[in-house]
Each structure stands twice: as structure tokens, then as C-alpha cells.
Design a protein around this nucleic acid. Structure first.
Length: 738
DNA sequence: AATGCGATGCCTTAT
DNA sequence: GCATCGCATT
């Protein structure tokens, strides 16, 4: 029986459990994805379950895709009928169909955190709330956690009774929600909350989905929050065929409302539940696992379990203590370069993990220096860039005219002489009539206090949008995109600028176009709302591609659910990891969450794990000193290898360093003759001169206009064919004579 | 109306 | 160290 092949007895038991609630406690690397996919296959081929009746909720879209693919490989047909998606995508799908029952239009838009901030700002201005005292950030956090707990604005108000501050927050929450509705927009939390509302207020809809999803599976159950729990409970209430998989030791999303009791109390919610523990780890070496166990056993709030493995003992966990984050990053980069040139795997077998996104910068710098291809996951999002948000603003306006945030964003971009004063007048008018901003713009002539010329400019804008709307009916999305860039003059304005920055923006827009095209190719029925949805909900980890041979940089959070042969964890310092707030918190569970994060990090590693720390590091613009992380001290000493490799410790002022890759891989590491000396870069002879054509890894080819000797380095001015004139230091730019 | 400058405040983590 | 914001300047 192929489905059960190569599975251990416990895994088989989990796969074969068909009816009734099932809790699978799956330790890291215990093959839970395997169990989940095989269970889906089992239901379909062995139990005759209609694939249509199966719902599998995963944590990321990537995991969803993988699961579908793997099921597809095992079963003969029907895999495409299984609903595999994340909580958020599932909710959007349901809401697109039924949200009109809640008084929204089905063309609703999804607001990201930036859009939310804009709404909060407006709301605060209206309510005359000082955002110096009530920070937008914390207001949003309060609203978000209220939603996660399914507290409506009304309920929040009641709870706040008598508390002045809470009352203020309640009024912001109420106004925010009203504004969102008027904009026909939902934020991330709303997607879940509104689906629960839909189910609770419309039993016929709930019943439809209960009948539809007779078998439900939820992955990463330890990270579900209260709304998600409610959602799952509602769907599973009828057939109670619910299978959840999780590991309480890997619960790392308490900060966004995850309730660890959802998994700890599963047996209370479903007394008839069967519990299966997967404790054999197939991923990591004994040493890595022992180190992870050594750390996690210091937590008190956990279900006792011991992860074991039949894998080899493996290398010890390496630890390197550096002077600064610069030295740390350089050491990591060198280590990777050395290993690769020694034939130990490819770039994509290496991942560098850290606690905060800000740490990625130094690492990037050093990887570039050593010519190591890498990819950063997360951090500053592509979709947060101005030019991208602008064009998306047009698309949103075309799709949902009630999206005031989008309309306000683009009404004067590019400049059309519609200034803040005119917009304010239109906005007042809209408020008074209780209509949306765009609707008021359509009646520009009637807006009080607006002069003829301004009204005419507004009408021209409305006309522009209306033409786009008409075109949207017959143009493809990519054609519509081109049309917007063209007709608005957005592209022309950028092109006319002739600056490097404008050039980069054009490149970014090009990239956006690529994404639109690939969306069109991947969907059988591409729609504008579908595109915007994908942009809002698809995380960067989702697009990870195994064929992309690059070192991966990401936060420990993003790494959840992934595995790599070789893992580096940087910044193992008290105050950074565990974070300062968790150390000083009077709630000890905050520190425990950090410890679980550490456990998650360690268990991502298959073969080797290297930890590093810096004695001092630049944080918020000033140098902070820190002690070695307490988590490192929790690792049994005999598992640690603290001897730093010789080459990682260059004496200050050394003029030459060990460069093992130079001779064996001549040409590939063409910047290796730049030797770090303190913060300075010392260069050898340049292989190019003024007038030569050179090649830059990112900017392509160009002509050298000038070379100036500045301090210890050369400042090279290059006229690139596609990116214009750039000045760069020879020590950092990877220029090669072409 | 648009730009540019200096002060400010801020750091987890992410769909 | 970086981005955002308010204010002053043209």
C-alpha cells in the first residue's frame, strides 16, 4: 500500500485515523507535512472521501502549494478539488461570495498596515485625538488584539466603562471600523472576524460550508488565535472530523494573538479526541537536537515530550563571539564562501537567521563584498514602495471607487494641481453628504468654496478614472497597467527625471508588471480583485523557489516550517535575542516565547548549526554592549565548539587574509583582493581605468568616466547603459573589466 | 503648492 | 540609522 510506505507506525496510525477529532503533537522535523499530505491521500483513495469535502488550512501559501503538489503526486485524481489555503485566503474566498450579506460590496479591498495607519490618522484628526499621546501604532495594536479576541467596538466600549483612556481607544476603534466600512475595505483581522460574523448571522451559509468541509485539517495549530479557533470550531461543529497538527514548543506568535491554549486544551474542547505524538525527528543531527532540547527544557509551560533521532551525531554546534556586528557578519560570509569552495553544498543549502529585520543590512553588505548570491526574505516590502503603492492606488480606485485611501493617494499623483486645500473641501463635502470622496469628486461643480479651475481639474481626474474603468472591462490586467503608466503621465514624469532614483523606480514598476503578468499566467480567470488580493496576502516566503541557488536571509519567525542543511543564527545576545522587552517583562511567559523561537531556529538545521554573537553592536544609531545570550548558556557545554576558525580572527591591521576561494575559483570572487582593515577598505591595483567598459553585478555594463583616489579607496564614476551615472567605491562595487 | 531641512521618535517578530 | 513629520522657504 503505497500511501503507508516508508512511514513509521505512529505516522501510519495518524494517517489512518479517519473519523472524529484528532490531535497530532508533532515535534520539529517529525514528518508532519508528510503525515498531513498522506492523510489527505488516504481519505481520498482509501476511504472514498470526495476531495471536494476536504479543507486543509496551512500557515503559509507556500506550504499550501507544496501540500497540494504532494497530494497530487500520490492520488490519481481530484487533488485540485481539495481546498488547501491559509486562513486569510480561505476567508477572502468565502467573503467574495457572501459579504454582501454583511452590507459590504463584494469588490471590497484589503488594507495593509500602511493603509490602516492612514485611516487611523484621519480618524484621530476627526476625533481630535492627539497622536503624540495615543500613538497610531498602539491604537492599531489595541484594535487588532480586540478583533483577535472577537471584541466588537460596542463590546470594547462596555468593557472600557469608566476608564478614560480605554474609552478613547474605544471611540477610535468605532470610528475606524465605520470608516473601513464606508471605504468598503477590510484589514487582515477583518477578513477573519467578518467570516465569523457571516457564519454566526447567516446559518444557511455556515451550513453550506459545514456540509462542504466534512474533513478539516489545520496545520501549525499552536499559532492559531481566538478568531481562528472560532472559525474552525464553527466549521467543524457538524461532523467533528477535525484533525489539528501542532507543537506547543513552536508557538511563536503570541504577540499577534496566538493562544497556546487552543492546542493545550484541545482534549477539553473535544473530549473524544485521539492524541498522537510524533517524536522521532528525521531532520537534524543528534547534536543539534540535543542542543535544542537543552534550551527548550527550561520552559515550564509545555507538554512534556522528548524528541529523538536515529540520525548521526554530527558536528558540534559552533559558537563564535565577535567584537562587533561587522566582524560577525564578515565571519558568517567568509564561512559560507569557504564551505562552498570546499565543495560543501550549494548556496541554497545555507540560511542565515536573525531576530530582527534590521540585522540583515550588515550581512548583506558582507555577502556582497564576497560576491555571494543571497536573497532576503521580509523586511522592507516591495509593495510598500511609493511608486508601487501609487500604481496600486490606481488599480484599487478602478476596482473599488469607495476606497477613499486609494483615491486620496492618487488624486494628485502625478501632480495635477489638486492640492491639499481642494481635497479638504471635497472631503468636507463628502462627509456632510455621507458619501465617499470619489463620489463627491464626480460632483466637483457642486463643492462649496471650490473655484472653477480647481473643479475642472478634478473633473478631468474623474474622467481619467472612468475611462480606465471602461477599459478594465476589455483590457488584460497588464495592458491596463501599461495604460495607467502611460495615460497618467506617471512613467513620463519618472523618465524625464533622469536620476538614479527615478531609474530604480522604473525598474520597480517593471518588476510589478512582471508580477502582474505571472499572475495572469497562473490564473485561469485573472481578475483585478484577485490580483490585488494576491498582492495583499501572499508573503515573500511563499515565493521561495528551490531552483534559486542563493543564500537565504530571514528572521527566525519567517523560518518557521522551513529546513536547511546549514543554519547560522546571528545576534545571540541578551537584549537582542532574547529581546530586551522579554527580559524586562514581568510576565515570564514572554521570555518563554523567545526560548521557543530559539528552539524553532535550532531545529531548522539539518547538518550544521553555527551561532554567533557580538560584544557590541550598533542599535538605533548608538553602540550597545551586550552579554552572550542566556540561551547559549543553556546549551550543554559538551555540545558546543567555541574555538573560532583562525581565518575568522584577523589581527587588526592585517594586510592579507586567508582567501581559499581565490585560486581555486579564479574569477568568481573578483573582489577578494580588497582586504578589510578596521572600517577602511584597502585596494590593490584596479584592473580598469578611465574609458574602460566595466560590468557591475546589479547595474550591468557601463563606461568608467572618472577614478578619484579618496583616502584608502578609489571613487569610481561610471556611466551605466541602463542605470545612469553612479559614483561608487571600488572596494564595495564589484566592478569587472568587460 | 511643492520642496527641503532639521527635529523627533523609534525597534521586535507578520498575515 | 532610518523614516516620518512639522515647519520654513521658494
Amino acid at each position: 500500500m503505497s500511501i503507508l510506505e516508508e512511514m513509521n507506525p505512529v505516522q501510519q496510525e495518524a494517517v489512518k485515523h479517519v473519523d472524529g477529532p484528532l490531535l497530532i503533537l508533532a515535534g520539529a522535523g517529525s514528518g508532519k507535512t508528510r503525515v498531513l499530505t498522506h492523510r489527505v491521500a488516504w481519505l481520498i483513495s482509501e476511504c472514498g472521501v470526495n476531495p471536494w469535502n476536504i479543507l486543509a488550512i496551512t500557515f503559509t501559501n507556500k506550504a499550501a502549494g507544496e501540500m497540494r503538489e504532494r497530494v497530487d503526486r500520490i492520488v490519481d485524481f481530484g487533488a485540485e478539488d481539495v481546498w488547501v489555503s491559509t486562513f486569510h485566503s480561505m476567508c477572502v474566498r468565502i467573503l467574495r461570495r457572501y459579504i454582501d450579506r454583511l452590507g459590504y460590496e463584494r469588490s471590497f479591498t484589503i488594507y495593509d498596515t500602511d493603509d490602516q495607519k492612514t485611516v487611523i490618522k484621519e480618524v484621530c484628526r476627526q476625533l481630535e485625538i492627539d497622536t503624540k499621546i495615543y500613538k497610531e501604532r498602539s491604537l492599531l495594536a489595541a484594535i487588532s488584539s480586540a478583533k483577535e479576541e472577537l471584541l466588537s467596538p460596542e463590546a470594547y466600549e462596555k468593557q472600557a466603562a469608566g476608564n478614560y483612556q480605554q474609552n478613547r481607544v474605544a471611540s477610535v476603534y468605532r470610528a475606524y471600523q465605520a470608516r473601513m466600512k464606508s471605504n468598503n475595505a477590510l484589514d487582515f483581522d477583518d477578513l477573519l472576524v467578518k467570516t465569523v460574523e457571516l457564519f454566526e448571522q447567516h446559518p444557511d451559509v455556515l451550513e453550506y460550508y459545514q456540509e462542504r468541509f466534512k474533513y478539516i485539517m489545520v496545520d501549525e495549530y499552536q499559532d492559531t488565535n481566538t478568531v481562528q479557533f472560532r472559525l474552525v470550531s464553527l466549521l467543524a461543529a457538524r461532523y467533528r472530523n477535525i484533525c489539528v497538527v501542532g507543537d506547543d514548543d513552536q508557538s511563536i506568535y503570541k504577540f499577534r494573538g496566538a493562544n497556546i491554549h487552543n492546542i493545550l486544551d484541545f482534549e477539553k474542547t473535544y473530549p473524544e479526541a485521539k492524541v498522537i505524538r510524533l517524536e522521532q525527528n528525521y531532520r537534524s543531527t543528534q547534536n543539534i537536537l540535543a542542543a535544542a532540547n537543552g534550551v527548550i527544557r527550561n520552559n515550564t509551560e509545555r507538554k512534556a515530550k522528548t524528541l529523538w533521532t536515529e540520525n548521526e551525531e554530527g558536528d558540534k554546534v559552533r559558537l563564535e563571539q565577535c567584537q562587533s556586528e561587522q566582524e560577525e557578519a564578515l565571519s558568517v560570509a567568509r564561512d559560507i564562501a569557504r564551505n562552498i569552495s570546499a565543495g560543501k553544498g550549494q548556496y541554497k543549502d545555507y540560511a542565515v537567521l536573525y531576530r530582527t529585520n534590521a540585522q540583515s543590512r550588515v550581512l548583506e553588505e558582507k555577502l556582497i563584498m564576497l560576491n555571494i548570491p543571497y536573497r532576503v526574505i521580509g523586511g522592507v516590502n516591495f509593495y510598500q514602495r511609493k511608486e508601487i503603492k501609487d500604481i496600486l492606488g490606481y488599480l484599487k480606485t478602478i476596482g473599488n471607487g469607495r476606497d477613499d485611501v486609494a483615491v486620496a493617494r492618487i488624486i494628485n499623483v502625478p501632480k495635477r494641481g489638486i492640492g491639499a486645500a481642494s481635497i479638504a473641501k471635497a472631503d468636507d463635502y463628502a462627509q456632510n453628504l455621507g458619501i465617499n470622496l470619489y463620489e463627491s469628486l464626480r460632483m466637483a461643480d457642486g463643492i462649496p468654496g471650490l473655484n472653477k479651475a480647481a473643479a475642472a481639474r478634478i473633473s478631468a481626474f474623474v474622467n481619467l478614472i472612468e475611462v480606465f474603468r471602461a477599459k478594465a472591462d476589455y483590457l488584460s490586467l497588464s495592458d491596463l497597467f501599461d495604460n495607467i503608466l502611460e495615460e497618467t503621465g506617471y512613467l513620463a514624469e519618472l523618465t524625464a527625471e533622469h536620476t538614479d532614483e527615478a531609474q530604480t523606480r522604473i525598474e520597480n514598476l517593471d518588476e510589478l508588471r512582471n508580477k502582474i503578468v505571472s499572475y495572469e499566467k497562473s490564473e485561469s480567470e485573472p481578475t483585478l480583485s484577485g490580483l490585488l488580493e494576491q498582492i495583499a496576502l501572499v508573503a515573500e516566503v511563499d515565493s521561495l523557489d528551490d531552483s534559486d541557488n542563493k543564500v537565504l536571509l530571514m528572521t527566525l519567525h519567517s523560518a518557521k516550517g522551513l529546513e536547511f542543511p546549514n543554519v547560522y543564527i546571528c545576534g545571540m545576545e541578551d537584549g537582542l535575542f532574547p529581546g530586551y522587552l522579554s527580559i524586562t517583562s514581568d510576565d515570564p511567559s514572554d521570555l518563554e516565547e523567545e526560548r521557543r523561537l530559539c528552539y524553532v531556529g535550532f531545529t531548522r538545521a539539518m547538518k550544521t548549526l553555527k551561532l554567533s554573537a557580538a560584544a557590541s553592536r550598533m542599535q538605533h544609531g548608538n553602540i550597545q554592549r551586550a552579554k552572550l545570550s542566556r540561551f547559549v548558556r543553556e546549551i550543554p557545554e559538551e555540545l558546543l565548539d567555541t574555538a573560532a576558525p583562525a581565518a575568522a580572527r584577523p589581527s587588526i591591521g592585517a594586510s592579507r587574509i586567508n582567501r581559499p576561494s581565490m585560486k581555486t575559483n579564479a574569477g568568481r570572487f573578483n573582489v577578494s583582493y580588497f582586504v578589510p582593515k578596521g572600517n577602511q577598505i584597502v585596494s590593490g591595483e584596479l584592473e580598469y581605468g578611465v574609458g574602460d567598459t566595466v560590468r557591475h553585478v546589479k547595474f550591468g555594463t557601463g563606461k568608467v568616466l572618472d577614478i578619484k583616489k579618496g583616502g584608502k579607496d578609489y571613487e569610481v564614476t561610471v556611466q551605466f547603459e541602463r542605470f545612469g551615472v553612479k559614483k561608487m567605491f571600488a572596494g564595495f562595487a564589484k566592478l569587472k573589466k568587460a
